[in-house]
Design a protein around this nucleic acid. Structure first.
Length: 413
DNA sequence: CGTTGTGTTGAT
DNA sequence: TCAACACAACGG
């Protein structure tokens, strides 16, 4: 994408300034130690006791507990890249984000842009084949290196119809509901939000914390019902209805699903890191049925799903759960390829928000059919608008994202 | 209750 | 754009 068109990096005055030779970290570890502060306080002009040591690295900020945060700015907004034990790790995270956000010539802490191996080519291809939101997510979860290597491994993997069908399966799986409104079109559901469940969400506390932002937006509580909470019904993709108590806990100032939640965890074998998705039928007014879906951690990639060996029961279960859909896909999906879906997405998005994109051009990258940058541009665009704050779940797979965006786009129309 | 990372502000 | 600072929200 940006190699030729360079749309998203046009503004970044491509390093007219000679990149200041990055410090060979080993040498200049001057003030990174937490002890510096103590010295200052010790020499004691005044009680500067609680001042944090600033970092020598760009995009790195100290945390109160001695760890290091990484951040980058774009369009007047900070994008948080996560926290790290080592200052250098945070600096690397910034570097990666800088390359993704500002192109190869971005000023970084370490890499002066060495064309050394084709390693860099692969990595920059990897970067541009993922949306900014995805890269940020990897950095925050410290999975960037793993995913990069994974993609290298899958580089030679074929684009078989089977794997493509699998992509569609995931796509459909997410949007699936019984008959009713939009079985085929997928346009009848409004994607509310996702949450990667934490260990305590699937632990003995028998509750799911709904991030405040989403809770107040999608599940507003009446003032009176704040204490006791209310009962909410959600339908899963098998048509089963789940009833959860939903309330606000003053003690932790959190919105939670309590009663009924543990049964869902149990039946779906939810594990920490899995993602639950909340949807709603987008019919106006009364007919607003709620839906809940889930997927195993990192399950978006067909490669990952296929390569999932024993050990990950969630993924296996997930596949099993949706096998019937795969069969149907094989039968129905001959010509209704992903391209068709993408067309719709792009068109919707065009109509709704952004500048015109060139539709549907399939290229193969890292063993996965993708659509020549368009999707990532769309993703970046949308993510800029809609998810600044909350980390989006990992989705190596464009199709899954496609469907969700499709919902968003459809909603916007 | 410790940590994250967001709100905010001032500087460059 | 960028980092310093404060602290609410979050996870456990």
């Amino acid at each position: 994408m940006d190699t030729s068109s360079c749309t998203e990096v046009t503004d970044c005055t491509v390093s007219v300034t000679p990149a200041p030779a990055p410090p060979p970290d080993k040498l200049c570890r001057v003030g990174s130690g937490a002890s510096v502060v103590l010295d200052a306080a010790d020499s004691g002009v005044e009680a500067e006791s609680r001042k944090l040591p600033s970092s020598q690295y760009k995009g790195v900020v100290p945390q109160p507990n001695g760890r290091w945060g990484a951040q980058i700015y774009e369009k007047h907004q900070r994008v948080w890249l996560g926290t790290f034990n080592e200052e250098e790790e945070a600096a690397k995270a910034y570097d990666i984000a800088a390359q993704r956000f500002r192109g190869r010539d971005a000023i970084t802490n370490f890499k002066p842009l060495s064309e050394t191996l084709d390693h860099d080519e692969v990595e920059s291809a990897f970067l541009t084949s993922h949306s900014k939101a995805e890269i940020v997510d990897m950095l925050r979860k410290h999975t960037y290196n793993d995913e990069l290597q994974q993609s290298k491994r899958n580089y030679n993997e074929s684009t078989s119809t089977a794997s493509r069908a699998k992509l569609m399966m995931n796509c459909r799986g997410l949007m699936h509901a019984k008959s009713g409104v939009g079985a085929g079109a997928g346009a009848a559901f409004e994607h509310l939000f996702d949450k990667a469940v934490t260990p305590s969400d699937v632990g003995k506390l028998n509750r799911l914390v709904i991030p405040k932002q989403h809770a107040e937006k999608h599940f507003p509580l009446q003032i009176g019902s704040t204490c006791k909470g209310v009962l909410l019904n959600f339908e899963d993709n098998g048509g089963k209805v789940w009833r959860f108590r939903y309330s606000y806990w003053n003690s932790s100032q959190s919105y939670v699903l309590t009663k009924g939640w543990s049964r869902f965890v149990k039946e779906k074998s939810l594990k920490a890191g899995d993602t639950v998705t909340f949807l709603r039928s987008s019919g106006a007014g009364q007919d607003r049925q709620l839906y809940i879906d889930w997927k195993p951690r990192g399950a978006s990639s067909a490669a990952a799903a296929a390569a999932t060996t024993a050990g990950d029961g969630g993924a296996l279960l997930f596949q099993k759960q949706q096998q019937h859909q795969l069969v149907r896909l094989h039968q129905q999906q001959q010509q209704q390829t992903i391209g068709v879906e993408v067309c719709r997405v792009v068109d919707s998005v065009n109509a709704g928000l952004g500048p015109v994109q060139n539709p549907v051009q399939v290229v193969r990258l890292f063993g996965v059919d993708i659509f020549n940058g368009v999707i990532n541009q769309v993703n970046d665009q949308i993510s800029g608008n809609n998810i600044g704050k909350k980390r989006e779940l990992e989705l190596e797979l464009l199709t899954v994202e496609c469907c969700k965006k499709q919902c968003l786009a459809a909603q916007a129309l």
